[in-house]
Nucleic acid binder design. Sequence first.
DNA 1: CGGACTTACTTTTGCTATGAAACAATCCAG
DNA 2: CTGGATTGTTTCATAGCAAAAGTAAGTCCG
Lengths: 386, 386
Amino acid sequence: MTTHAASWLPLSAGERSVAIEVLVHGPLSRTELAHRLNLSAGSLTRLTKPLIESGLLVEVPDGGGTTQTRQGRPSQPLDIVAESRAFLGFKVTQERVYGVVTTLRSDVTARLDRPLTSHDPEDVADLLAEMTTELAAGAPGLAGIGIGVGGRVRDRAVVGESPFLLWRDVPLARLVERRTGLPVVVENDVAALVEAETWFGAGRGLDRFAVLTIGAGIGYGLVLGGRRVPYAEEDRGFGSHWIIDPHGPLTPSGERGSAVSLLTIPSIRYQIRAATGRDLTYEEILGLAVAGEPMCSRVVDEAARALGTLVAQIANFAMPQKILLAGEGVGLMDVAGTTARETIRAHRHPLAAPVGLETKVSDFHDWARGAAVLAIQVLVLGTAEG
Amino acid sequence: MTTHAASWLPLSAGERSVAIEVLVHGPLSRTELAHRLNLSAGSLTRLTKPLIESGLLVEVPDGGGTTQTRQGRPSQPLDIVAESRAFLGFKVTQERVYGVVTTLRSDVTARLDRPLTSHDPEDVADLLAEMTTELAAGAPGLAGIGIGVGGRVRDRAVVGESPFLLWRDVPLARLVERRTGLPVVVENDVAALVEAETWFGAGRGLDRFAVLTIGAGIGYGLVLGGRRVPYAEEDRGFGSHWIIDPHGPLTPSGERGSAVSLLTIPSIRYQIRAATGRDLTYEEILGLAVAGEPMCSRVVDEAARALGTLVAQIANFAMPQKILLAGEGVGLMDVAGTTARETIRAHRHPLAAPVGLETKVSDFHDWARGAAVLAIQVLVLGTAEG
DNA sequence: CGGACTTACTTTTGCTATGAAACAATCCAG
DNA sequence: CTGGATTGTTTCATAGCAAAAGTAAGTCCG
């Protein structure tokens, strides 16, 4: 079932919309597709035929599970051959590089991580190329590479500015393309995660969707009309000026009472360290808060209220249909979710629709997966921008 | 140049897009249109011909002012015959009804207002019909009526709930249609103002655009992808739960420290009355604040900071390209604009793009004009929803 | 003054995506 | 086994478009 053509980018607009719909929304019959895309049944036959012949789509036996015992001719669901192509996604952090192999559906089939010993762009590119070789061994049909970096990225290719790598105008895509011979997409890490969730995660099929990440920093992404809104603040200083409580704590990394000072993992640890002198991990602090330790409870509670305020503001002003909380720091919701939800309610109009809130703890491989999704978008479906 | 057909709704999709573009963006040459709509020059000739023949568009001599002395054949700008149709817009308040006549371009050609002596739906419809007769006298080619009401409106026809009229499920569109024989669109007043500004005002041609109104209440509207986002809180309680300062003032109409308590005209007057015992008008309070009277200065300054916070939050989370401040209460910006702008800056990331902020004091006839724009949208261009 | 050039618009032509409608396939019910 | 229901296919006419070639109306410059 190996495809012959080097790339199946040459799709017409109609074919592409069919491919995206099937890719994102699972197996769908032609009739169902016709409904979703506002096309006639005849057009669907026309559009799907070449996609099936090229091996991108297949007719699957049937869902099986949802066997509607309706009468009439049974529908013939179409599905993407997810394994026909493989994609690599990388997340570059200050200390390590995380990599994953995914299918077309962005299911992770392999993962790998390596320490980053040098921040020199050439060395980083070398490491990425090495990891690509290693990951590619078990991945036939490798179609492209996506790389997520904290910092500003231009044209999905050049790292304009990265505070923690101390980079400025590094043409990372070109460096890696030269070493691997594969097309490479570089993007801000939060942007990549947002795209991934929009296509394959919590934001699937939604028109308006927001992502808030809490971890070493604060990240925010907004999707409107199915497209991510580009914004200027794409870096780790995001949220350092979102003042939530002018009387709140002051930390090294954010303004007094800002989202960064109240919510990020380093800031919470800093607050505990400054107050008690003990250097606890984030998990230890959450555990102590559950156990009722006063200082930890106070800080965690304050964080939960800040998170609730933030979510309510997003809901009030951006009006998304759903808000996803992601990142390494959302364990907060397990510990103090009630406080957060009460705060949200207090900051929302009683008649307003309840906020569709979803929580997803992400590790660094999830961030890498986000980068792989960018490669899927750009390289396979020709989505040039957003 | 009177049109023969009863209505020129039967436009193809292409023709409609041309008509909208010319309507919203002034006189445009065919070449310019071809660029904007991503069409070929040939298509433009095809699409504009029937529009010119029907009398909707005309070739105008030339801008004159912006006579670019370029060489080559001079362009032949096309313009809408704005006077070919007239529209009525009404704004219904608790005490009065305001009405305007507008052209297709939403330029107001006449205005009128009348006291509202009864809140009975039939009486209100009678008054609207009377005012229609009076306004229609000087307006040939009347094509439709738009009505803006504070409260929730369903299907652009039925007032679901209006707190100040004490209405519930009043089919206002039908009542007025029956009396006038003209098509009628009913919509929430804020929504109408937002639509008007999106098409003909501050939000013209923008993809993301926010409107914040300050007056007797707080209103908020968000436009994404050129379309207004529908929301559930469309009523005068909007903003009563946007807590800006938990330690702020408490007023009868909003939660403690909410946008309503800090910013609306009744709340500001209430604060002064509660503190000094004097019942001053909003303008008097602003004047005293400028003169340095301590209590008024304090309240106005606090309001300006609240406004700045609000604007910053909208900018941070909804990321509009422009924010319009409208309503009767934006005189605040003239008096304490510096404070407001400083507050915005404090709540924004230094690297973030500066907020495109525009201020426009609106009177009730401006609200009525907003309703007329709805009529233009729905009736002329067949824009069914949004 | 007049040809070269430039730009705007029009006409013609052919192609493509599309929907409509007739047709075929495949199930269920009785 | 027949009729009905539903899905998918084929055929065909057509709307809408781009490309190319042609026309119009000006400027530039010798």
